[in-house]
Design a protein around this nucleic acid. Structure first.
Lengths: 342, 342
DNA sequence: TCACTTTTGATGTACGTTAATCAGAAATGA
DNA sequence: TCATTTCTGATTAACGTACATCAAAAGTGA
């Protein structure tokens, strides 16, 4: 038999109503009485029964995921994983809705954020763009009482409660280390392809990679970042122009920090030989194939399933004003070689 | 308002008891009635409320973790994580106990297994040794009706329901790939240090590493495995004897497949220069320091916290004869460089 | 002392499911 | 046909907490 509120009440010499008041921090209890109850709870090692509590509370959590309308494999995967998580959490009385906004469009995202009402949603997880107008709209959300976490791409200066995503500076540093070791300290150019420098995650990856290469592999010459807008065609175009400007042996490494890798891979597969070291992000059907056939040398990847679940759990904890086990919810960064693909 | 069994009962024209019987697969219901109820559930999109169900069931899960008395940092970490998980799962009515057995002693483990009674425990998670007598004892456990999963080290031919741990062949392959790339296809010796070849996980790592090196880096000469019994002193001894037999530049890589890395590190730090590439397992305070200062080049690590939780969730699902989302419960293998330490 | 506020107690209902018990219907055998 | 057994369905009391209500007690100030 587990100890219940009844037992605590008896032990403390008060009524269950009072124990309930103390337990849920309701007012109208003398501090002496509070102490008595607290002591009794400790003495009996009382733990509230979450099943009974949840049943009685009949609370429903309504969360909203805001994602860009982007057609990259990664975005498709993320969308699918949100749907999966919705299924997974439904029995726990968590309702998850997804809404899309026009990509790379600050006002569109701001308008979407402004349309979120605490009457309909307890919290939102937003893939945020670092564009004018977004941050104020996000802060207004928080002021209205909606819990906000940023997902995948952060807006650190905003009022969002937390960022759910990998540490992208670390990811970049890791890429830098791999480029350095795989090129064995040779002299040559390193190219950077981002989706867009309005995406905080890509900016941070670039920063981390530069850090390591500058400090530990001084013979690597770092080229300016080019943008492919996470789009296959545009990424193919910028990749082609890289190979137009540099001979293959001179271009010793490429760090692809965003999506659109299908374009990169397509161009790379036509390079006859002297292929540069390529580090890219996110495991998708295309990058997987490229990793196996040697076009890509290593893949950094976030586990989007885990990421989405972490976002939900954090939003739930925020909605209850509870503490979160952030260590458990930290999003991990997987490093894939051909040998450890899942 | 969510739909309840009351609604289903009304819709199907039966009583709640009948709905409950159908829901829980109890006998004594005419198949025509079963269909009626199933149809009603589908029509109303009924989902049982897990909180109400658990409250009513008042089921308690009692699980037992069987771990070897071994003093490696990894084992300490694992033990601590089991204690943490016990805390974490307690509100969910899951009671977790830990019991230790004398290490590298088959009869001792077999005796410990034989002492497990289904009256006291619903399931066990056991770090298993591949020694005579262990497998039959484990199978007897299963026959007695105790759910069994193997943890960290498997016994695949036994009757255990599942193995909770990383894919160690994959881990070994990854190590092989890193050794190959970091030594850039040079000619030289590769040494292997295992804890013991009675540990399935170490054997499998060795297998995977050999696979890759033999197939893709033919200039690597593979030395026979030496055993350090996951012990600091004995590992130090075998490491020293490696350096006695081979000159530093000739010994181009070491793959440490077990624990006892403190001994390896201590010896390595005295090597003046020409340090071989070192790949080791498990992130502990010692291996972390060695990775940062360059003694170790890469670290393969399993997330023991996740692993223990996965074991508990799988045991719970087994106890309920439920299906498990094994994809979610697969233990991941982290690859650490100095740049991405948590 | 009285009127008033603050604190506490007693009590009951609700939450949705489980499972025991009981009543009635159907099937069976003589 | 009746008595008996076997099925099937209905009713209802838990499970432990949340929360509302009302009454009573304690404390406060004048």
């Amino acid at each position: 038999m587990r100890t219940t509120i009844q037992d605590v009440a008896r032990h403390a010499g008060v009524s269950v109503a009072t124990v309930d008041r103390v337990l849920n921090g309701r007012p109208m209890v003398r501090s002496r009485t509070v102490d008595k109850v607290r002591d009794a709870m400790k003495a009996l090692n009382y733990r509230p029964d979450i099943f009974a509590a949840n049943l009685s509370r009949k609370r429903v959590y309504r969360f909203l995921f805001l994602l860009p309308q982007r057609r990259s494999s990664f975005m498709k995967q993320l969308t699918a994983d949100v749907a999966l998580a919705a299924e997974h959490f439904r029995p726990g009385r968590i309702e998850i809705e997804t809404r899309f906004f026009e990509d790379f469009n600050g006002p569109a995202l701001a308008a979407t954020l402004d349309a979120v009402s605490p009457a309909d949603h307890d919290g939102i997880a937003v893939y945020s763009l670092d564009l004018p107008g977004v941050q104020p709209a996000l802060n207004r959300c928080v002021e209205r009482g909606v819990k906000v976490v940023t997902l995948v791409s952060d807006l650190p200066a905003s009022a969002r409660a937390h960022f759910i995503g990998p540490d992208n500076v670390v990811a970049g540093r890791l890429a830098g280390r791999l480029i350095g070791r795989f090129t064995a300290g040779r002299r040559g150019n390193v190219a950077f392809i981002a989706g867009s420098m309005t995406l905080r995650d890509h900016v941070e990856r670039h920063l981390g990679c530069e850090q390591v290469l500058r400090a530990e592999f001084p013979d690597a010459k770092l080229l300016p970042v080019v943008e492919g807008y996470d789009d296959t065609e545009r990424t193919a175009t910028v990749t082609r122009s890289l190979f137009d400007r540099f001979d293959a042996p001179d271009l010793m490494a490429i760090y692809s920090m965003g999506a659109g890798n299908q374009g990169l891979i397509r161009v790379m597969e036509r390079i006859p030989r002297g292929k540069p070291v390529v580090i890219a992000h996110e495991l998708t059907e295309h990058t997987r194939r490229a990793l196996v056939n040697g076009t890509i040398d290593a893949l950094l990847s976030q586990d989007t399933k885990q990421e989405v679940r972490a976002a939900v759990r954090v939003l739930q904890a925020l909605s209850d004003n509870e503490e979160v086990e952030f260590n458990m919810e930290r999003v991990r960064l997987d490093l894939f070689f051909p040998d450890n693909l899942p």
